[in-house]
Nucleic acid binder design. Structure first.
Lengths: 190, 190
DNA sequence: ACCTGAACACCGTTCAAGT
DNA sequence: ACCTGAACACCGTTCAAGT
């Protein structure tokens, strides 16, 4: 299931409006209370019946994805831009830092991003992670990461670092430090 | 709040029995459904009223801690035993592997263990993490970890690795691999 | 001192009835 | 085609009444 695959036919005008209201209301609620905010309250805040929420979003994850869709897309773009930045390992570090940053937008979001099962991974999520993986492969090819580095390991570790951030007292230095540590561990022996 | 600090006076016999039934029932439920299993069901399975559960355990975390108390204690013991194992970095790796392993006992348990706020950290949890920190300090003193390594960083990364495990398809090689990567990142530059 | 279980407020999800 | 909101099953938490 590809989570809110937009139907080929456009939505009826009122349905499109409702959908957008739900996404807006969800953004507010997630920012205030995390991704486990009450769906009922979101529907109320959007001014629609709860059934309408379920009609548009089959699951909580689908709604979360819809809310961060744009951010995931820009993460993919950033990846494309960084593809020419040298040294390659720097590009990787910058991109992963951005990924961690995005994963910290809402409390609980890291759990939506980690280890997606291929068959149920949303396309935007796949694109974003693919962009990161490409940068990692480039750094491997340049000999700046071990040849046996697994891109998924570093992506999931980045999500895990964001998760640590959700459970720690705020410390702006900590997450870059943890990221740097993980990347250092993936450098080739010299 | 130190979570289920055992009162000085022993419990009445029936209360002690109820408490143990609750811990046993919770263990089963957590193993089957993770640490977010229904507290009502646990009380039912233990054959007590739900109020009794709340009387013995002020919060879900307190119940979780009571269930893993023994495992945390043995983690502290293992730490003491490893304090003479050489090389020190090996002792650290073995202990953190055990920590990750324990954190994987129940789905959701990693979240109970990560980044505990000092003032509300349970004593058993404090003892276990202290044992790990001691091994880390020893490895630092031996020059096998960077001098600026922060023990809490490695402990939380270990919990984070266990969390990744909760969200990935089972792969027995992955978590040792991720741990090894993190430790490699904390080795001194040479 | 401790236990019970009804009561309350809340939440996710479905679906018959409406437009 | 889409929306509404009542209905259902469930859950955490409290507390008056009991022993």
């Amino acid at each position: 299931m590809t989570a809110t695959a937009p139907s080929i036919r456009p939505l009826r005008a009122d349905a499109a409006r409702n959908r957008q209201s739900l996404v807006d209301a969800a953004f507010d609620a997630f920012r205030r209370e995390g991704v486990h905010a009450s769906l009922d309250d979101i529907a109320k805040a959007a001014g629609v019946g709860s059934g309408t929420l379920y009609r548009h979003f089959a699951s909580r994850d689908a709604l979360v994805l819809a809310v961060i869709e744009g951010r995931l897309a820009s993460l993919a773009e950033v990846g494309a831009e960084l593809a020419t930045v040298d040294p390659p390992i720097q590009a990787v570090e910058r991109w992963l830092a951005a990924y961690i940053d995005q994963a910290g937008t809402f409390h609980g979001l890291a759990g939506t991003l980690v280890g997606p099962k291929p068959e149920e991974e949303a396309p935007e999520c796949h694109a974003a992670r693919g962009a990161g993986a490409a940068l990692i492969e480039r750094a491997i090819a340049a000999g700046q990461l071990r040849a046996d580095t697994i891109a998924g390991d570093l992506l999931d570790l980045a999500a895990a670092i964001a998760w640590v951030g959700e459970h720690s007292p705020p410390d702006p230095d900590r997450m870059p430090r943890l990221l740097h540590l993980c990347l250092a561990g993936a450098r080739p022996p010299r």
